[in-house]
Design a protein around this nucleic acid. Structure first.
Lengths: 290, 290
DNA sequence: AATAACTGATAACTTTGAGTTATTAAAAAA
DNA sequence: TTTTTTAATAACTCAAAGTTATCAGTTATT
């Protein structure tokens, strides 16, 4: 025979009322049943918990001590089950998020603010990672959510557009073309181009190429980089021009001019990606927000 | 249906082995029985604790959390039951002890040393109290053990001699009688006597009287006091002579001379007293020591 | 591709023991 | 003295824990 929570529950009732009849009544069981369970409990522990006379019931020293502990145990158990439910429902948990540097100023801050307001129990763990690494880590369950610019993702991953952006031309301040004189990218066909590396984000690379091809030329690429800031610095130094997502204008203190390219079909899209069968309960809530 | 420790125990086994068959084997129950209990537990908590496929079992986030808590709970429960047993067996507990000032230098220090060595879990609570107060407090369960000098105690209290002492004459240094010239108390029949108050310890008072009566005189009592030190000071000041338990010679820094009274039947006895039906488990051990 | 060796779930059953009612025995109160 | 209130005891019922036998998938092995 083993100790069960039932015993502790019954013990607590008797310890409180110091009266088997009343305790039994409150527990919605019969008095003999209660008597037997308490006696059994004493046999299991090999300890006398109550002094019983025909007329009165009092706690022994051991029973007195146990009473306090039982209160603690039930209290702890209550908290634990509540916590377990919260975790299961995703109200509490950890969410590992990966993102492209170029997303850091758009969707992510907004998401984090809403998340911490609506689900203060969810902790986030952010990491700046390339498209490729994010996909890899999502597949290996090292990441719960990624923010990428990719045309498509492997089977088993789901994705959703979270931001759509136009492209902007990035030019040094000294450049002759400005907002008024700019008409189309064909005007830049002789300029050297500075672009994001294709292995960092091939979809971006391909789109830039198609923008130029639509104007009947293939750009001369002088430099490639994975960092937006590096690209801006190179433009500033007069080493070429660049085409980047328009939203990158925000968030950097720049000495270059941005000219939004209007009237073209190409857009850059930021996708949220996650493993379709990811079991992290917190993920559900983030996807609701997005 | 309620959660029981059985559920937690089974959960722990499955969480450890991540295999129902092996967990069931270790629990000495059948696999279907285990499966059903775990399922029932999930129904009670309304939370999925394991991801089961036909081939593998893994913990959910909630299950992972619960595992740690369950370990804690069982650990706590183990400590608690051990503690309860210790308390019940008297290895741990509190003992409220009362004593006469005149016992402070004899039995008490020895007892405390042995107690703390053999039962380090027993805490003691000492209080210097008169015979009368000790008896009263023992009867009211305000005290577990007393040390008194009384001829007898009320029904319901038990007693036991713990120390037997001779009486000694206390004289100022200037007094003509000394160890060599002293023969019997009759030599002092003209001296004023300083004694312990009869209401502090009537048996003591009666014995002193009987010592004198055996020598055919009734002492002239000049002063009474409840404090040994006061008596010594009065003797020192030449206000009279005293007869006290011999052991009081130790423990005070005195400017009076002690002369042990030999060849008389009177002795002073220190008794341990306790309520016969006292339930304090620690008391048992102290009585063993005495 | 067929087979064997695992896994956990399901179904029907046995058996244990928690809880029941009825009663007793003792103590306190009326 | 009678009534009321207490916990314990005895004999019973029944819910459910645990059983055996089996199924239905998945993963190695041949």
């Amino acid at each position: 025979m083993n100790l069960e929570l039932r015993h502790l529950e019954y013990f607590r009732a008797v310890a409180e009322h110091l009266n088997f009849r009343k305790a039994a009544e409150r527990l919605f069981i019969s008095q003999p049943g209660l008597s037997r369970q308490i006696r059994q409990m004493e046999e299991i522990l090999e300890v006398e918990l109550f002094y019983r006379t025909k007329r009165s019931v009092t706690l022994t020293a051991a029973g007195e001590f146990l009473k306090g502990e039982v209160d603690f145990i039930f209290n702890h158990l209550e908290l634990t089950t509540q916590q377990v439910k919260n975790i299961a429902s995703g109200k509490i948990g950890e969410l590992r998020i990966g993102f492209l540097g170029s997303a850091a100023h758009q969707v992510i801050p907004d998401l984090l603010v809403r998340l911490s307001r609506e689900f203060p129990g969810i902790q986030t763990n952010l990491e700046e990672l390339s498209n490729h690494l994010q996909v890899e880590m999502l597949e290996k369950d090292k990441l719960d959510l990624g923010f990428v610019r990719l045309a498509r993702v492997p089977d088993g991953l789901s994705m959703k557009v979270v931001h759509r952006d136009t492209f902007s031309l990035v030019l040094p301040h000294s450049h002759p073309i400005d907002d008024d004189t700019f008409e189309h990218v064909g005007q830049l066909q002789e300029e050297p181009f500075i672009l994001f590396s294709s292995d960092y984000s091939s979809i971006y690379f391909d789109k830039i190429m198609s923008i130029c091809e639509d104007r009947g030329f293939t750009p001369k690429i002088s430099h490639k980089s994975v960092h937006a800031l590096t690209i801006f610095k190179l433009v500033e130094a007069g080493l070429g021009v660049a085409i980047v997502p328009s939203s990158l204008k925000e968030g950097y203190d720049l000495k270059v001019k941005f000219i939004e390219i209007k009237g073209i079909p190409q857009h850059t899209e930021l996708f949220a990606v996650w493993k379709t069968e990811n079991r992290n309960p917190a993920l559900k809530h983030v996807l609701e927000i997005l």
